[in-house]
Simulated scan of single mutants.
Amino acid sequence: MNDSVNRPADGAPISVVLAGGGTAGHVEPAMAVADALTALHPDVRITALGTARGLETRLVPERGYHLELITPVPLPRKPTGDLVRLPGRVRRAVRQTRHVFDDVAVDVVIGFGGYVALPAYLAARGGVRRRRVPVVIHEANATAGIANKVGARSAQRVLSAVPGSGLKDAEVIGVPVRAAITALDRAAQRAEARAAFGLPDDTPVLLVFGGSQGAASINRAVSAAAGELARSGVAVLHAYGAKNTLDLRTPEPGDPPYVAVPYLNRMDLAYAAADLAICRSGAMTVAEVSAVGLPAVYVPLPIGNGEQRLNALPVVNAGGGLLVDDADLTPRFVAEVADALLTDPPRLSAMTSAAAQVGHRDAAERVAAVALDIALSGRAARGRRR
């Protein structure tokens, strides 16, 4: 990036609004970009848009960034009462967003989809006596959502995680991932990570998780395979979700440990401790797992529009993972695939290399650089018009 990024012409901090509330899949990429923005430009002013019911109410303040709440605008896919109420919600949310833009003197908006993205895109279009605000869009999923499809029509730059997202002229850069993950050296932190979870140094470790809420079908299949896994000499680190319970057999003397926790606060250590993962294939999960080069068995969520399967395909096709339907994830399958992979170091090594080659470790920095360059260009243009 040009050195001028660190020297705004008018001396005022560059102001960036991040629109990506609702789920962790929207909030986490936004927070990764926020961290990259502050690393590139320490004086940048960052404001995150969110709603009172989204995960951002916890995640954004925890990361030290300012959060402004607006009316959520869920876009119904079927005719419901929400469709009737949609125009009023949109107008209210756009009005609220414009007030935020004015208060923070926004230079650029970065949108990630979700409940707050559409109002941000519409507010950025300006109007009578209002200047247009440049927009950068990032689409994390293999199939773009409605909000990003609308916003992409007038955005200055459109970025995506994978090819074929449905957004015209999108530049493929991967999913922004936080630095604690992208900088992770699994081999170097293996001993520390295993000690943190009470896992032995000399035993293959299977990491199991189903996203922030857990996945009941994955929990059932893996827990039921605990005996077979133990007999194969496999230790397990299993995050089952705070709202779920896990029915585990009583271990036999000398069994490798089966460490079951509701939630993993240190995913970086979990990735470093593991040799193989069984997990869902949400965009953020695939991005993190591939960025650290961890071989994985991806189990796409069996509902929705099939985007989780599409998220995993680039890694699977490259040889960095396997894909199994939720209905086919049986205890027998878990035991057999874990035994086959975890007792085959050359195959695991090849999968590690393949996953790492597909992963994008610099996506957050690339989004941040694009946004800062656009913000500075806009300032320079406004300065010339004065």
Rank of each mutant, 00 (worst) to 15 (best):
D107T: 11
A161P: 02
K168L: 08
R132N: 14
P119R: 05
R132P: 09
F101L: 15
G151Q: 04
V150W: 00
R132T: 07
P134L: 04
V90H: 05
A117K: 09
A117D: 12
A105L: 04
A155V: 08
H138E: 12
R89E: 12
V133P: 05
G113S: 15
A93I: 07
V108Q: 12
L86T: 03
V90C: 12
A140G: 03
A155K: 02
A161G: 06
R91K: 12
V150S: 05
V106S: 06
L86D: 10
K149A: 15
R89S: 15
G113K: 03
A152V: 03
N141G: 03
V150L: 09
R125K: 04
V94D: 10
V100F: 14
T143H: 07
T97C: 10
D107Q: 10
R153N: 13
D82L: 12
K168I: 10
V108S: 13
L122Q: 01
N148P: 01
L159Q: 02
H99E: 04
A120M: 06
D102W: 11
V109Q: 07
D103T: 05
V162I: 08
R132S: 09
G88R: 11
R95K: 10
A144C: 06
L167I: 00
S154F: 05
N148D: 01
R85M: 08
Q96D: 14
V116R: 02
V150T: 02
D169N: 12
T143W: 03
A170V: 07
A123V: 00
A144W: 00
A93M: 13
V128M: 07
V133D: 01
A105M: 07
P87Q: 07
I146R: 06
L167A: 01
G114P: 14
A93R: 06
V106T: 15
L118I: 03
A93K: 04
T97Q: 05
V94Q: 12
I137M: 04
R98F: 08
G111F: 06
R153H: 13
V90W: 15
V162K: 09
Y121R: 02
R95F: 01
A161D: 04
Q96H: 14
V108W: 05
Q156I: 04
P87L: 08
R153V: 14
A147S: 05
A120I: 02
G88E: 13
V135R: 01
G114M: 10
V135S: 00
F112N: 15
A123Y: 00
G166D: 06
G127I: 08
V162T: 11
V100T: 11
F112R: 13
S160D: 01
R157Q: 11
A124D: 01
A147C: 14
V116L: 10
S165T: 14
V100M: 15
P87E: 11
V150K: 02
A120R: 01
P163K: 09
R95V: 09
I110P: 00
P134Y: 06
R89V: 11
V135H: 02
D102H: 14
G145D: 09
D103P: 12
D169E: 05
G126R: 09
I146C: 04
V90R: 14
A142G: 05
F101R: 03
I146V: 06
E139H: 07
Y115G: 13
H138D: 07
L159C: 15
R130I: 07
R95P: 04
S154H: 13
P119H: 11
R89H: 11
V90S: 05
K149Q: 11
A93L: 14
K168N: 05
